[in-house]
Design a protein around this nucleic acid. Structure first.
Length: 934
RNA sequence: GCGGAUGUGGCGUAAUUGGCAGCCGCGCCAGACUUAGGAUCUGGUGCCGUAAGGCGUGGGGGUUCGAGUCCCUUCAUCCGCACCA
């Protein structure tokens, strides 16, 4: 009566989709059970909807969630939407549709697509970052960050009020400015006393506090993109052009919000040790943080001007100090204008003009180009009083270290090239390690020409030099990080407004009662063009009174994403961002699944916010994600047709070299394998209605390429289409079967029939040839039990280790074996239904019901496998001697290794071959004699 | 340039972690059935060879009784960072 076919699958899947919602089976609340938190990286709801690549990670997490639930855990498995962002805003500019409206529609579409795949999300916990009830708390957390400073003495964030009382009591002598370059206006000092503090007026005090706040305003160099009319984050700029659109990006100074993430650099780095991320992911984060240990050294400067500041360099190689042949400072360095000599002034100015003229793109494109100019000034080596010429060059970056370096040509590649290019003398301090042709950055050389360091190995000399520098008071150990503070302002409409009010140009936190500060309604999403965002156009909103105004910027999308996993624990709380009880119960995310493209930005900001909230006492943990899995990307498999240039003739791929052709993407839907469906092609686009074809063997063969899945390549495969023809269960299992989760792979449906057949075979175990449900209550045989328990064990191991592709294989083997055993016994099939239910929830739920259960399969328990059925009583072991199988013996399976050795030795087989001498070695592997060495 | 990863049949992949390489699926070959379907079922399928046998996990070398797995070296591909002193 019922066959596992298209119609039946459609009926079953729709039935259970509705039933699960009706019964509310996916709703979770805290309980006495142990918790397990499985999280997906929530998507940005783009207008294009989901393609088959998106659900890969979601399917994996769904399997884990269902499996853990069967194993007795109380599983939190929520989903939400990262709904603020630039695409909706650009769509609004182009089509006049308000971002709120298009975003809402997109979300609706996403949810319907996701529901079809059968995910067990607790939709009652859905969050949207663009919802005021959500971003109220994004703003609130921002204010907590604004109201904090990093107490380096305690190595944690503290409330700003603690800083104020420190200033009132002792000034800032124990807590100098985090940014060492900062000076008090007027005096130019870096330290102030308690008395000074009391003498400062309100604005000065606020400006000082701003230097300490973890969310602060400052004039920063930002990536200004004229074409997009906005500022971009570092990770939105790739090779000097914008990530979206590829428009040029230039530096511009703007007063912006930043997060002082640099204060957390060390903890973000250390934290990596205790969390389970892949090596490459950790490495990318380490790289981004970019810690390097070295020393800061102060050099006296000799120049024509009598009073000049010392120059300070950062180096990781203080041991090479006697090899310094020149100094280089960044062109932007403030000392440049002071030290340039009369004779060199022209050169220097010419060079500065040149640097100014170079765009970011030029600079990146020509990193190898060596340029520079001599300033005419000299630095004095503190140990041997040697006068070292000071140069400027753009290869030294103003933003890293001190913006000045010591040039050691014999041990640094770039310095060496610089010296060669400008014909500067090269001092060899590493003897035979330097060949005169290229620098050698070794640590192992014995130093020469190095005064008191002569004879020391470089590695050891580092400490000796630093100790001496510290003794002399002209240097000290220093750790540097590449990471910069995170720019947190965006000149956009569709984001969280900053919950602050400016008074006398200084921002003050809004009262909590005023939150959320709602995004004002608007029809004008164009940037103001002056660098300010669209909100600046809403003058009435910006201006509050005569002296007060709002911020016209909004937060980046990272803001909402930096804490959404916390909100899921208590999504409807109107009093707090989440209750401490909920946070303590659900705690850290046990498994976080998502793409590696969020390696730096999102994960670092999420980790940062959690650390700050932890420091302020809101959280009991300071790492959000215990384990991270990066699912691979599913790429598209594009097809091409070849049009003979200037004609409407299309030539098959095998013959295209005989013509002058252009390759055009063709919709993968009208290509079967590589063969083009000619009729469908002529109907595809009006241009091709009269197309002519040059065929090979009567067929038109298309070209193929693996590319990103994209609408414009016509290679997008929609999961809905797969579900339409095979059902959601097949889609789920096939995506898992495709290969290891973490590996990127092209989408193809080559093997999907195999998975589909598997589900049908599974179904047929329960049905006779006529499709009638039939089941036997007979006692299972030993062989059947063995198949069952072997499968259960494998599945459990595979799912725990996230190798879902092998799980699917195991199920296939199981069904093949049961089919050939003609098994239709309840005692065997019922546990398998539960075993399979994480992977194929719809068909198993239907079978579960047919098996007579009222309660949903989702609420059952994963069956325990029985070790005894996995074992045989005895086994025939081949006995190899010196690598060749010489004999076979039978042993009890659980016989200890030593006993096996004894039996073999007693048997005389070995003596036969070893002339009575005991063998050198008897190798027993897993209770099995593998080899005997004579 | 630096860092990370990967490399196994015609294809996607597997290998109890050092123990009979190629499980499972696709494809292909042969057969059965048939209401002729791009259906279903059964058997076969790493390569060379009629066979016996030989070869085989990108290449070369090493450790080991034994290597896809460990070590050295080299090549190729992908990803990340890229003048970070």
């Amino acid at each position: 009566m019922s066959d596992y076919n298209k119609e039946e699958i459609g009926r079953i899947e729709e039935k259970w989709r509705k039933e699960w919602v009706k019964r509310g089976v996916y709703k979770v609340v805290p309980s006495k059970k142990p918790k397990y938190y499985v999280l997906d990286m929530f998507p940005y709801p783009s207008g294009a909807g989901l393609h088959v690549g998106h659900p890969l990670g979601y399917i994996a997490s769904d399997i884990v969630a269902r499996f853990k639930r069967l194993k007795g855990f109380n599983v939190l498995h929520p989903m939400g939407f990262d709904a603020f962002g630039l695409p909706a805003e650009q769509y609004a500019i182009e089509h006049g549709i308000h971002p709120a409206k298009s975003t809402g529609q997109n979300i609706k579409n996403f949810i319907s697509q996701m529901d079809k795949i059968g995910f067990c999300y607790d939709w009652s916990r859905e969050v949207r970052t663009c919802d005021p009830t959500y971003y109220k708390w994004t703003q609130w957390i921002f204010l907590q960050i604004f109201d904090s400073w990093y107490n380096r003495k305690k190595d944690k964030a503290d409330r700003i009020e603690t800083l104020i009382s420190i200033f009132e009591g002792e000034g800032n002598c124990n807590h100098p400015f985090p940014n060492i370059k900062h000076r008090l206006p007027g005096s130019g000092e870096t330290l102030f006393s308690a008395l000074d503090w009391k003498s400062f007026d309100e604005k000065s005090r606020q400006e000082i506090l701003m230097q300490y706040r973890l969310a602060y305003l400052a004039y920063t160099d930002v990536n200004w993109c004229e074409a997009l009319g906005t500022v971009l984050a570092n990770d939105e700029v790739i090779n000097g052009v914008s990530y979206r659109g590829g428009f040029p990006v230039v530096k511009k100074q703007m007063r912006q919000w930043s997060l002082r993430i640099t204060e957390y650099a060390e903890r973000l780095l250390k934290g990596l040790e205790e969390i389970d991320f892949s090596d490459s992911m950790k490495e990318i984060q380490r790289n981004w943080i970019g810690k390097s240990t070295g020393a800061k050294i102060r050099f006296k400067v000799k120049s024509e001007k009598s009073k000049v500041d010392d120059m300070v360099v950062f180096t990781t190689r203080p041991d090479t100090i006697f090899g310094v042949d020149f100094m280089v400072v960044a062109p932007e360095h403030e000392m440049v204008k002071d030290i340039a000599s009369e004779a060199q002034r022209g050169e220097v100015e010419k060079y500065l003009t040149y640097v100014e003229s170079r765009s970011e793109i030029d600079r990146m494109a020509e990193v190898k180009k060596i340029t520079g100019a001599f300033t005419g000034a000299y630095a004095i080596n503190p140990f041997n009083r040697r006068e070292i010429p000071i140069w400027i060059s753009e290869y030294v970056l103003a933003g890293y270290g001190t913006g000045a370096i010591m040039g050691v040509p014999c041990s640094d590649e770039r310095d060496h090239k610089f010296a060669k290019h400008f014909n500067l003398p090269i001092t060899n301090i590493i003897g035979p390690h330097y060949n005169g042709k290229e620098a050698n950055p070794t640590y192992d050389a014995v130093l020469e020409n190095s005064d008191f360091l002569n004879g020391l190995v470089m590695r050891e000399a580092i400490q000796v030099v630093v100790n001496k520098l510290e003794e002399m008071g002209i240097g000290r150990r220093q750790v540097n990080y590449k990471m910069r503070d995170a720019g947190w302002s965006r000149q956009r409409y569709w984001g969280e407004p900053f919950p602050v009010i400016y008074r006398d140009d200084m921002p003050y936190a809004m009262d909590e009662k005023g939150l959320p500060l709602e995004l004002p309604d608007s029809n004008d999403f164009r940037p103001s063009g002056t660098g300010e965002g669209p909100l600046a156009n809403l003058k009435d909103w910006i201006k509050i009174g005569e002296r007060e105004r709002r911020d016209s910027d909004t937060m980046p999308t990272h803001a909402g994403a930096a804490w959404y996993f916390l909100r899921f624990t208590d999504p409807h709380n109107t009093k707090e961002f989440a209750s401490r009880e909920a946070l303590d119960y659900w705690g850290q995310v046990d498994v976080y699944i998502g793409g590696s493209e969020h390696a730096v930005a999102h994960l670092l900001y999420a980790r940062l916010w959690v650390k700050i909230l932890h420091d302020l006492g809101y959280l009991g943990f300071d790492e959000p994600f215990k384990k991270l899995i990066n699912q691979g990307k599913i790429t598209g498999d594009s097809r091409f047709v070849y049009r003979v240039r200037g004609t409407n003739k299309f030539v098959s791929a095998g013959l295209k070299d005989q013509y002058d052709t252009d390759a055009l993407h063709v919709d993968v839907k009208i290509v079967n394998g590589l063969e083009l469906n000619l009729e469908a092609f002529t109907q595809w686009k009006p241009d091709f209605a009269n197309a002519e074809f040059i065929l090979e063997e009567g067929k038109y063969i298309c070209g193929a390429a693996i590319e990103k899945m994209s609408k414009s390549y016509f290679n997008v495969v929609n999961p809905d289409d797969i579900i339409e023809s095979y059902g959601a269960d097949t889609l789920r299992m096939y995506e898992m079967f495709l290969g290891p989760l973490e590996q990127s792979k092209p989408w193809n449906t080559n093997g999907i029939d195999g998975v589909y057949k598997f589900l049908r075979k599974f179904w047929n175990l329960f049905h006779d040839v006529k499709g009638n449900f039939r089941l036997s209550d007979d006692e299972p045989t030993r062989a059947e039990l063995k198949v069952l328990h072997k499968t259960l064990k494998k599945i459990e191991q595979d799912v725990e280790s996230f190798s879902f592709n092998t799980s699917v294989s195991e199920f296939m083997i199981c069904v093949n074996e049961l089919t050939s055993l003609k098994t239709n016994k309840r005692s065997i099939l019922e546990p398998l239904v539960i075993g399979l239910s994480s992977f194929a929830p719809h068909v198993t739920e239907e079978l579960w019901e047919k098996l007579g259960h009222k309660e949903t399969a989702f609420n059952s328990t994963f069956p325990q496998y029985q070790e005894e059925y996995l074992k045989e009583n005895s086994f025939e072991y081949p006995i190899s001697i010196n690598g060749k199988v010489r004999a076979k013996m039978e042993f009890a399976l659980d016989m200890p290794k030593e006993d096996i050795e004894k039996v073999v030795l007693a048997s005389g087989i070995v003596n036969k071959w070893s002339e009575g001498k005991p063998p050198k070695k008897v190798i027993v592997v897993q209770g099995r004699i593998v080899n005997i060495v004579l």
